[in-house]
Design a protein around this nucleic acid. Structure first.
Lengths: 147, 147
DNA sequence: ATTTTATTGATATTGATTTTCAATTTCAAT
DNA sequence: ATTGAAATTGAAAATCAATATCAATAAAAT
């Protein structure tokens, strides 16, 4: 996400670029993590001790509204946010042991999608594909544990 | 779901078959809907006016624990329950206009899954695939509305 | 029929998310 | 640089679905 795009968005909407927003956005967009509000709030407190939870929360909402972030929710029932990079169409694979989230991309899904849409006369706009299981590390641990 | 299987399950666990449970389960398993607790509770009140929300809630939990129902959550952020039929592996397509939920099955997903699992050395146990868009009716309405 | 113990329904609690509001900060216009 | 209108902040309160509690009730084993 380019700094300028964000500034344009703010101006267009009559919004302001505050220190809090600037820092939150820098911190968030740098990493490629899937943050909960709580997690990002905890990290932000180290940089800006006085920052409030609500500010982090609202800034993430802002990023979603602006199209710079995506809101997701996996099986653990907390909302997570990830920075959105242009033309980045990935799905997620989640380890049910350690919580690790792996992103993957697969083109076969498009064909599958077209087939299903045609069959049911549906106009598909977006999808959600998630795989749950054990990542390499946790699987190995499990095998060792059994011995 | 067979009546007997349920009774066996209850006995095995030292649980009891109450009128409430019996009615809720009959009502729920008959239909092939994706109920929220609230929705099922509203329908149950017509049959059993005194029934409590918590009872419906707990009975659905019971069905999930027994393997007779599945718990799902779509983008609208409320938990839904659907009766589980043996060997029924379907996914969902949801209309973002009217909320209609269509179930579909597609075998291509298995191959896709295998490919991704192998690539990342993951052991995939379950998946979630959802499509969101407009169903036939709502799409037609939209086209007409524009004229 | 009696007794034991699970279940019920009403209500309270939880925990994540969202809203509120007075104090503060931004920023465009002077 | 100063001002003033309006957006933003942080703390606290409200919301809302999901879950737990508990005295009263009902199932089923004896």
């Amino acid at each position: 996400m380019k700094e300028q795009e964000l500034k344009d968005y703010l101006k267009e909407k009559g919004l302001r670029l505050t220190h809090q927003r600037e820092n939150i956005i820098k911190h968030f967009c740098d990493k490629n993590k899937h943050y909960t509000v709580e997690e990002l709030y905890e990290e932000m407190k180290k940089e800006m001790p006085g920052i409030g939870f609500a500010t982090v929360y609202r800034t993430l909402q802002l990023l979603v509204a602006a199209g710079f972030a995506l809101e997701r929710r996996f099986k653990d029932d907390v909302t997570r946010f990830e920075p959105l990079h242009k033309n980045d169409h990935h799905d997620h694979m989640i380890c049910i042991e350690c919580g690790r989230i792996i992103e993957f991309e697969n083109k076969k899904l498009e064909r599958l999608k077209d087939g299903v849409a045609k069959k049911h006369n549906f106009c598909i706009l977006l999808h959600k594909l998630e795989f749950y299981g054990y990542c390499e590390k946790c699987r190995n641990k499990k095998i060792k544990g059994k011995k």
